[in-house]
């Protein structure tokens, strides 16, 4: 990383970290939403951006994670943050089971299947599947998260929890991108046949991308449940999947910085447009079209990575 770029990143991070000091509670809450969507979009970016698998049902995995956390917390009194790994695991396993029979489908067929999975999950939740999801009303009374003995309840406290998770995710996913695993996913996206010809087990990597991306959505679901203390199926409808899909493509599929920038725009812009009142979604739709027309490869297109022989040797295994 060049010095200038490093400086810019540090400056941005510092600015963000100090944000709760000079923003009001509402604005911090918007930033929290952006952070949650950022987490979700980074997970989807693995599937859609890095591996090029059309997934428009990401909200399903988000829902599975959130409900796992909520059920464990309200029925078995497990502290909400302790459920984090478990809800990630459940969402990841769910994704593996669902994706296993359909992951070989060609792009658009996979797209509609994932839309279908998202809808089936939402309808199952509305219909109170297993008698545990509380039907259309959802689950309420989820306890506040506790970290090092501090109960997190105010927006700025959630801000540091959520954005801490985002920072950790960025670090992990940047490492992943440069690993053998990340390069295999990119190869898969660019040319599946050539990837298979080079000895890449395409089915394995596709499923791994799905599982990992979904696990991240599941963990974001836990944070969401903890923040809202009440969840219902409507929080995980088709619209959420569409928004996440737009964030990843608008940001420049496969580019972590781009995806985060797009999360800021897609979630933040409608808030800025509040003065347009009921016309704000109209403006939003128009902005989406215009942005795609002028930046067809996304705001920050993913560039082909450069790998020195040294990093390649380190990334082996």
């Amino acid at each position: 990383m060049k010095h200038g770029k490093l400086f810019a990143v540090v400056l941005l991070a510092a600015l963000l970290a100090a944000a709760p000091l000079f923003l009001n509670a509402y604005q911090v809450d918007v930033l929290n939403s952006i952070g949650l969507y950022g987490l979700l979009a980074l997970g989807l970016n693995l599937i859609l951006g890095e591996a090029g698998l059309f997934n428009m049902g990401h909200a399903a995995f988000y829902a599975v994670g959130a409900y796992t956390a909520a059920i464990l917390n309200t029925r078995y009194q497990i502290p909400i943050l302790w459920t984090l790994p478990l809800s990630g695991l459940t969402a990841g396993l769910f994704a593996l089971v669902v994706a296993r029979p359909v992951v070989h489908l060609r792009g658009d067929y996979l797209l509609i299947v994932t839309i279908g999975v998202g809808e089936i999950v939402r309808i199952a939740l509305v219909n109170d599947i297993f008698g545990m999801t509380g039907g259309a009303n959802g689950i309420f009374g989820i306890s506040r998260p506790q970290l090092f003995g501090i109960v997190i309840r105010r927006p700025w406290e959630f801000f540091y929890l959520i954005w801490g998770c985002v920072a950790l995710t960025i670090f992990l996913f940047l490492r992943l991108k440069q690993s053998r695993f990340g390069r295999a996913l990119n190869y898969l996206r660019e040319d599946e046949v050539a990837a298979e010809g080079s000895g890449i087990n395409t089915a394995y990597y596709k499923l791994a991308a799905f599982g990992l991306g979904a696990a991240w959505a599941g963990m974001a679901g836990t944070l969401f449940a903890a923040k809202m203390t009440i969840i219902s199926p409507e929080s995980f409808n088709f619209w959420e999947s569409v928004v996440l899909f737009m964030i990843v493509i608008l940001g420049g599929a496969g580019n972590i910085a781009g995806v985060l920038l797009a999360a800021f725009l897609v979630i933040g812009l409608p808030e800025l447009f509040r003065e347009f009142a009921s016309a704000r979604m109209l403006v939003f739709g128009l902005v989406m079209v215009v942005m795609m027309v002028f930046r067809p490869r996304g705001l920050l297109p993913a560039r082909g990575g450069r790998f020195s022989p040294v990093t390649l040797a380190r990334g082996r295994g």
Binding site: I249, L282, L286, M292
Partner: peptide, 20 residues
């Protein structure tokens, strides 16, 4: 001439616009 998914996002934007 753009990547296919960009057109999909443009389509989604158009859909939101028309609906509203």
């Amino acid at each position: 001439e753009s990547p296919r998914l960009s057109a999909v996002v443009s389509a989604l934007g158009a859909s939101i616009f028309l609906q509203n």
